[in-house]
Simulated scan of single mutants.
Amino acid sequence: MARDLSKQRFAAQNRRARFDYHIEDTIEAGLVLTGSEVKTLRLGRASINEAFATEKDGEMWLLNAYFPEYEAANRFNHEPRRPRKLLLKRREMSRLIGQIQRAGITLVPISIYFNARGIAKVELGLGKGKRKVDKRDTEKERDWKREQGRLLRERS
């Protein structure tokens, strides 16, 4: 039976990223993973809530992402919080490194998913941290949209 790979299947999402950061730009990058890490991702057990990407020795790395051990891998298992290399084109990488070195800019993973070919990709957001006031405004706006939906449903 053939699998439907036409839509993106999310393995992990960082829903808090858009609340904590103003996401200015998004970029898709590949990940260097071991077999047991891919199996864990396919089960949807990974967490990228505290993760971030940074530059080290001219390469981009995903740090603090949690991929729990895959039970069936036995002694061939991976380390859950190891740094994972990101695969980007040289031009994209140099542009990102330049932007990260500016004050207040962070590279935040928004989601990890499998593309149409079944390859794991990470969506990175170039974000600037929000202040408390900005977070309150976001929350007020979200509550108002929810209230508008309720009012419209009651009238019709």
Rank of each mutant, 00 (worst) to 15 (best):
A11G: 09
A11Q: 12
A12H: 03
A12M: 04
Q13C: 13
Q13V: 15
N14Q: 05
N14G: 08
R16N: 07
R16E: 03
A17H: 02
A17P: 02
A17M: 03
R18T: 14
R18N: 14
R18I: 15
F19H: 13
F19L: 12
D20W: 14
D20T: 15
Y21A: 09
H22W: 12
H22Q: 07
H22F: 13
H22G: 04
I23Y: 08
I23L: 04
I23R: 08
I23V: 04
I23D: 00
E24M: 15
E24S: 15
D25A: 13
I27P: 06
I27H: 06
A29L: 14
A29V: 14
G30K: 13
L31I: 11
L31V: 14
L31T: 10
V32W: 04
T34F: 06
G35Q: 02
E37M: 11
E37Q: 10
E37L: 05
E37S: 09
E37A: 11
V38T: 06
V38G: 01
T40G: 01
T40N: 03
T40P: 06
T40E: 01
T40S: 09
T40R: 10
L41S: 00
L41C: 01
L41N: 00
L41F: 01
L41V: 01
R42P: 01
L43R: 15
L43C: 09
L43S: 07
G44C: 04
G44T: 02
R45Q: 05
R45P: 00
S47Y: 13
I48E: 00
I48N: 01
I48R: 03
E50W: 03
E50F: 09
E50P: 02
F52K: 06
A53T: 00
A53V: 01
A53Y: 04
T54G: 05
T54L: 14
E55Y: 07
E55Q: 07
K56P: 01
K56E: 01
D57I: 03
G58A: 05
E59I: 11
E59F: 13
M60F: 10
M60K: 09
L62N: 02
L62T: 04
N64T: 12
N64H: 14
N64G: 07
Y66D: 02
